[in-house]
Design a protein around this nucleic acid. Structure first.
Length: 269
DNA sequence: TCCTTATGTACAA
DNA sequence: TGTACCTAAGGAC
């Protein structure tokens, strides 16, 4: 489930289970073996997330840079760790816990300088307290690209993925095909503030919920439902189902090789 | 058992 | 714009 909230939650959980103690580092699958050997027995000193990028800090200046991509998964468990399956790229283990990483797009040992380069190519992250939404709006407001594409562009804003994109545009009644330059400063401020709130809740609950209390099935007098991916949402993966608010059929389309979902009635140009 | 799909990104043409 | 990469779950057969 890798959008930004997942990665920030992972940073907290990796830190909570392994920080400030020597940790056993292995790569059962083999692709990270050389680096794992260098880190094995050293201390995990800090963890950090920026958008969908996770950084595990070892010793003074060694970082493991992890990006889950579309398929990557992380599983925590209590010691003793079971024998790893052959797809485990990275396992950390100590006396109390273990954690397995499978299927990441990126798992690499990098330097401070290389880490800085990653930060430099990412836009502001609604989950980082130091983030400033102004540079993101500067890019959005100068672009003829659709707002739907801009929200997924990690150089513009970091951490938003396909679910938050669809949901935040719905919550603000914005047609996904509107050009970035037609988004007003007030609209951008509202989108940003909403993302901060939604994604912080995502970190706390480890899932994406976007439906306002007044639109829950109970409040609307409708039967309870469970969305496929485990959270309560308005439009994501609800193609051809009735909109929770107006009853129109939710539409779907391809946009830059990803599935876009929106309500043609609630979201206006 | 095979096929499709997925909350992502990078690179080639 | 298309394709490659990484994994696992669910559905069709």
């Amino acid at each position: 489930m890798p959008e930004g909230h997942t990665i920030h939650r992972l940073a907290l959980d990796y830190g909570g289970h392994f920080a400030d103690r020597a940790v056993q580092v292995t790569s059962p699958q083999g692709k990270f073996s050389d680096s794992a050997a260098l880190l094995n027995g050293t201390e995990l000193t800090r963890t950090e997330a920026h958008g969908k990028h996770l950084f595990l800090g070892f010793r003074d200046a060694d970082w493991v840079h992890i990006h889950l991509g579309l398929f990557g998964k992380v599983d925590f468990g209590d010691a003793p760790a079971p024998p790893p399956t052959d797809t485990v790229r990275l396992r950390l283990a100590n006396d109390t816990s273990y954690v397995d990483l499978r299927g990441p797009t990126t798992c690499a040992l990098i330097t401070d300088t290389e880490k800085r380069a990653v930060h430099d190519r990412l836009g502001p992250d609604p989950l980082r307290p130091d983030s400033d939404p102004a540079p993101a709006y500067r890019r959005v407001s100068r672009s003829r690209t659709t707002v739907a594409a801009l929200l997924m562009d990690q150089k513009v804003i970091a951490g938003v993925g396909n679910v938050y994109r669809a949901e935040v545009l719905f919550r603000h009644g914005i047609d996904p095909y509107r050009a970035g330059r037609d988004i007003t400063p007030a609209e951008w401020d509202a989108i940003w503030a909403d993302l901060v709130e939604l994604m912080q809740e995502g970190v706390r609950n480890n899932r994406i919920d976007t439906v306002r209390p007044e639109h829950t099935p109970e409040a609307m007098g409708r039967p309870p439902r469970v969305d496929d991916h485990g959270g309560e949402v308005y439009v994501y993966r609800r193609a051809n189902l009735p909109c929770h608010i107006c009853g129109s059929e939710i539409r779907t389309a391809d946009l830059a090789a990803r599935n876009l979902f929106w309500c043609p009635n609630c979201q206006r140009a």
